[in-house]
Amino acid sequence: MARRLSQRETLTGWLFASPWALGMVLFVAGPVVASLVISFLEWNLLETPRWVGWANYRRLVTDDPLFYKSLNVTLLYTAAAVPLGMALSLALALALARPRRGQGLFRTIFFLPTVLSGVAAAMLWNWIFNADFGLVNVFLRHMGITGPEWLASERWALPALIIMSLWGMGGTMVIYIAGLQGIPRHLYESAAIDGAGPLRQFWHVTLPMLSPVLFFTLIMGIIGSFQVFTQAYVMTGGGPNYATFFYALYLFQQAIDFLNMGYASAMAWILFAIIMALTGLQFYFSKHWVYYEETGK
């Protein structure tokens, strides 16, 4: 490092990094600053923008029931879909971490749905949740139960989307399998010598050793929930009666349908603040349950 960097090296370095540097200015830093300024404007792109100070934020917090509704829907979805997905992924990962006949086949099957996202999958699930002839209610009818109207029901539309989200848990499962395979065997051996049964081994070896990965997927899951858009837009349009009116959907509506640029930007910054707060909170609590091997804490 004693050698001074030649001008040539500097130039080459920046040249190779220039796509990122330009993109950073044009599509990240510039828009971030602009978005902050716009959030203090009233601007529909047709008239000249008007400075309104904190009015957008004030209206969101004090005078917009839809803001709270969308927040509520998103948080409810997060609180159910994220832990459920994590628990199921972990169960599958535990069953598949050790060599077992058919292991590869099972892994393939569970992972397959993760590449099938978007509109096509939404269309499929729309039909699966059809009230009269959809797969779910046909099955329930076999059991002698009259199923709810799912996507057409204010009460069951959100649970339907939560069930649908579980179809994509194969990605998390694969991450957990890799995490489980990284746990040194000798830890289990010494636990077994100390007389720990499978349950206590799981509780005192597996979970602590896996906790950084669990923590990571938890944070990514929460961030992902705030981005839920396609399913809600295509399958329910946010309804019925706003039962699936996700935050990302409301923000999109304000920005693109109503062209309320200021209001939408204010919503985006509140979203950012919420994600940061949740992540910060997780980091704070993680001290108590996440074990990092290097520090031994």
Binding site: G30, A34, S35, M261, A268, W269, L271, I275
Partner: peptide, 10 residues
Amino acid sequence: MLPGQVTMAP
């Protein structure tokens, strides 16, 4: 870490 929505409007 930046949600896409923040840059959406600009």
